[in-house]
Design a protein around this nucleic acid. Structure first.
Lengths: 334, 334
DNA sequence: GCTATAAATGAAAGCGCTTACATTTAGTCT
DNA sequence: AGACTAAATGTAAGCGCTTTCATTTATAGC
């Protein structure tokens, strides 16, 4: 592989000049630029990005930590992040945190040790304190799907409460009064917020909230099926069921059908997230859209703006969910 | 950030010795190791991986190029690759190729420019020749889901023909004789192979192959629904339908239901890939398992063995598909 | 045409490591 | 104890770039 030195020799200029035409950060006379470019082309020169990083202390790499690399949710997020950075000539290093505190910390350590210029984190298990502490470190980061007051400017999040509210409101508007709610693990802030939104909508509609109608799930399919079993055992005359994510909704759907309920005729089911699977269920799942791709892109822009000085970037930190009407919820009145 | 120099000063040894205790590649007396380790701990020293890379010309990074970052298929693959490398202290740089030749080439160029030690490629659009050419370059790579004789030792692939054979055989065993086949784009080798397997199974069963029963799909949902429309228009008395991937099977299922067919009672549907969605459809999709996670892991091991001299790694280049029986196919005889 | 100033270029010192080679220290044998 | 070998450590030359500062070259003003 040709080095900058050989290019400079062939072009008859100094190393510095070659570096300048590459980086376009210092004016170079048109004629010499041409010479250099010709030499680069002739040698098939490709700058060594490692050497560039060492000399400039910029690695042009961004670390991404997500809970899981597979699954529809993170895929969409990573995809939009990668696309955004790729056009900016940066690259993305990924790691998985598996929703476990130790693994998440490890992952962060790992990415830091890789000299990332910045981190984009979708972490769940690690504490607020840890992150606040981390923010005092040298390495900057953005948080996705998390809202920590002390470092608000680093947080990109969805208005989860509004999502829970909209989900419930949709069912209420369709005339449902007998609702069940399968939440996520309530130690997770997003699960908590979605549930709060649910209660708020209920309250506004003058329906009294009843803890028997809540089942705390795990955001997985089994949570949905267990939730349905539990709620049915309570002997409630449910006509509508809200699940705090699509996966649980899918599990709920399967279980409800197994228990002899026709979906949506006898039971309307509402999901949350609008991940790909919501499109594959039968009936297709009515759900709340989580604009994860847009949020990932925004995280990338945040980094571009704050770390790479691309001032033009417009930032938005809080995103709004919206209802995606499909086939799993029907109006009782029609 | 502390540098190796400060550690050496604090420990009262030379740079080289510190480097040696880090890399464990040269014996160091126990007592001096202790001193060095203490110094490292005291300073909170973390080696600068960029400098290490420059000096050793090893970046410890592996580039992965897949068609899409989202989608269940690639997610599982990336996930297993990342896990494997992570424990080996390597990291993974990802890029998307979007099944377009130019983008795939770009992606490869990009990863090379990032000084990856090796590449793991899941490319579809780029030609065999290009890859053979690439293999003569300095940078080594493994191919997933591709079989090129000239560089066979670099290819990790599924026996797609066997998969197509098994899919068909399964339906035949269940007594189906009136089959339809929705293939992938036949310019793709895997689509071609699966179809070949289908024809072989038919032939062995003494059923004559009829081109009317083939619809060339696109591996997307629309391919499945269009396929069903087409096949039904042919006026064939289908009892079984084989789709060359799960996504098309899902589209086929939806369309068939819309046309008034009960699945599986009136039409058995077989998928291929066993991606996550096959679990979410209703009825749950019977399909052929594509062990993509295992294959990704194997690709990682290939790299570990060939590039990082981890001789212990056992390699397997060709993987076998197997039938996953679920609910979308039923026996005609029972 | 000559000086004053700005623009373009060059020289060289790192960036923080690894590693070949030289040197020192410890260990063994007589 | 001294000579010899093996093991441990040190020295210093890079790896391929960026960037500061000094120097040269072009441009303008008179």
């Amino acid at each position: 592989m040709a080095t900058i030195y050989e290019v400079s020799k062939l072009a008859g200029v100094s190393l510095a000049t070659v570096s300048r035409v590459m980086n376009k950060n210092t004016p170079v006379r048109e004629s010499t630029r041409k010479k250099v470019e010709a030499a680069m082309a002739e040698l098939g020169y490709r700058p060594n990005s490692i050497a560039q990083s060492l000399a400039s202390s910029r690695s042009n790499s961004i670390g991404i930590l997500v809970s899981e690399l597979h699954g529809p949710f993170y895929g969409a997020m990573i995809s939009s992040i990668e696309a955004e950075f790729r056009t900016a000539g940066k690259h993305v290093i990924i790691a998985a945190g598996h929703s476990e505190e130790a693994t998440e910390r490890d992952g962060i350590e790992f990415l830091i040790s890789r000299n990332c210029d910045a981190l984009i984190l979708h972490v769940e298990a690690v504490s607020d304190d840890y992150l606040v502490q981390l923010s005092k470190n040298e390495i900057p980061f953005v948080l996705i799907n998390r809202q920590i007051p002390a470092i608000e400017a680093h947080c990109i999040s969805l208005n989860n409460k509004l999502g829970g509210y909209l989900a419930t409101q949709t069912l209420l508007k369709q005339g449902h009064r007998q609702l069940g709610y399968i939440s996520g693990p309530l130690w997770k802030a997003d699960a908590q917020d979605r549930y709060r939104g649910h209660k708020l909508a209920l309250q506004e509609a003058g329906i009294e909230w009843d803890e028997k109608r809540l089942f705390e799930g795990d955001f997985h399919e089994s949570g949905g099926s267990n939730g349905v079993k539990y709620l049915l055992e309570q002997g409630l005359a449910l006509t509508g069921l809200i699940c705090a994510n699509d996966e649980m909704a899918s599990g709920a759907m399967t279980e409800a059908r197994e228990q002899g309920l026709a979906i949506p005729q006898q039971l309307s089911i509402m999901g949350f997230d609008n991940v790909m699977l919501s499109h594959y269920t039968y009936p297709k799942l009515t759900t709340i859209d989580y604009p994860i791709a847009a949020m990932g892109q925004m995280a990338a822009r945040w980094v571009l703006k704050h770390i790479y000085q691309q001032e033009k970037q417009q930032l938005q930190l809080v995103f709004e969910p919206r209802v995606i009407e499909r086939d799993s919820c029907v109006s009782l009145t029609s």
